[in-house]
């Protein structure tokens, strides 16, 4: 008793036998229920599987959550949502690590006052806790270099080795006395005078602004301690045995001094002597 009509019906319907004729309203209702069920199935499967992608990360620490809040207030305009950067304004911060945050925010360079060749050092906007929270957020966001714990990072550093490394790696830009120097187009290497151990370490790790990165495979942590020891104990701390150092700008200020002090004093002397005739 199979007929053409039967063949056109589905398998389940054929097993069930000839259905009772249903009203048009019931058929429509059934379609709506089936659609609803299918949607719920798809939605349920999505909610079951999709969130599991995020569920692989541990939830952000409370410090990072606070840091994210600070970020969204002060940094988001240039570095973008989730710190992925804004074209032409600020770079992505994914992977720069807390070392970079500690340097840039801790020295007041970030947030910038305006877009210019290079952010200058200024009094920091955030306090230490806030900087730590921001750093934690950036660290948890994309990982990256971190400054080791502790304030004194040059304990046991070898001054002579540090001096040699400093002259090879740092003095080209920061100058022999750590006073800084000019780079092209308004950029510059800043003075090392106000820098703390952690800031120098962070700068070497993260390579801020125009500075190259000196990773741990180029300059080992022990060598970094040597360099910091040389900067802090010899350049920043050492007394100048020869008197006032004239800013340690090399022969430029010495030339200025011989005219402004030496020649001026002696010309006055000539006036005095010749006035006594």
């Amino acid at each position: 008793m199979t007929s053409d009509n039967d063949r056109r019906r589905g398998l389940l319907a054929r097993l069930r036998g000839r259905p009772a004729a249903r009203s048009r309203g019931r058929r429509r209702l059934g379609a709506a229920v089936r659609l609803l069920a299918a949607l719920m199935l798809a939605g349920g499967a999505y909610t079951a599987f999709a969130p599991s992608v995020q569920a692989q990360d541990t939830p952000m620490s409370s410090a990072a959550t606070d840091g994210k809040a600070l970020f969204n207030e002060s940094c988001v305009s240039c570095h973008g949502r989730n710190a992925q950067g804004v074209e032409g304004r600020g770079p992505s911060l994914v992977g720069v690590g807390s070392a970079s945050v500690e340097f840039q925010v801790g020295t007041g360079r970030m947030p910038m006052v305006r877009q210019e060749a290079q952010a200058p050092r200024k009094p920091p906007v955030f306090n230490d806790d806030e900087i730590r929270q921001l750093g934690q957020y950036i660290q948890e966001l994309g990982g990256g270099p971190e400054v080791p714990a502790g304030e004194d990072l040059h304990k046991g550093g070898n001054l002579a080795a540090g001096g040699e490394l400093f002259r090879i790696n740092c003095s080209q830009c920061h100058a022999f006395g750590g006073g800084g120097g000019a780079l092209s187009s308004g950029k510059y290497a800043p003075t090392l005078k106000p820098a703390t151990d952690r800031q120098i370490y962070a700068a070497m790790l993260s390579g801020p602004q125009n500075m190259p990165v000196f990773g741990d495979n180029q300059i080992t942590p022990e060598q970094k301690a040597d360099i910091i020891a040389y900067i802090q104990e010899t350049l920043n701390h050492n007394q100048d045995p020869g008197g006032f150092n004239l800013g340690r700008y090399g022969p430029s200020t010495e030339g200025l001094a011989i005219f402004l002090v030496g020649i001026v004093a002696l010309v006055f002397t000539t006036l005095w002597i010749a006035g006594k005739s």
């Binding site: 080209q172 830009c173 100058a175 006073g179 120097g181 700008y249 090399g250 022969p251």
Partner: peptide, 18 residues
């Protein structure tokens, strides 16, 4: 402060006398 001369060492602000 200048250290011994090495061919690979050069400092910023390396000027001659006036």
């Amino acid at each position: 402060l200048f250290g011994p001369y090495e061919a690979w060492v050069v400092s910023a602000a390396s000027q001659p006398d006036w």
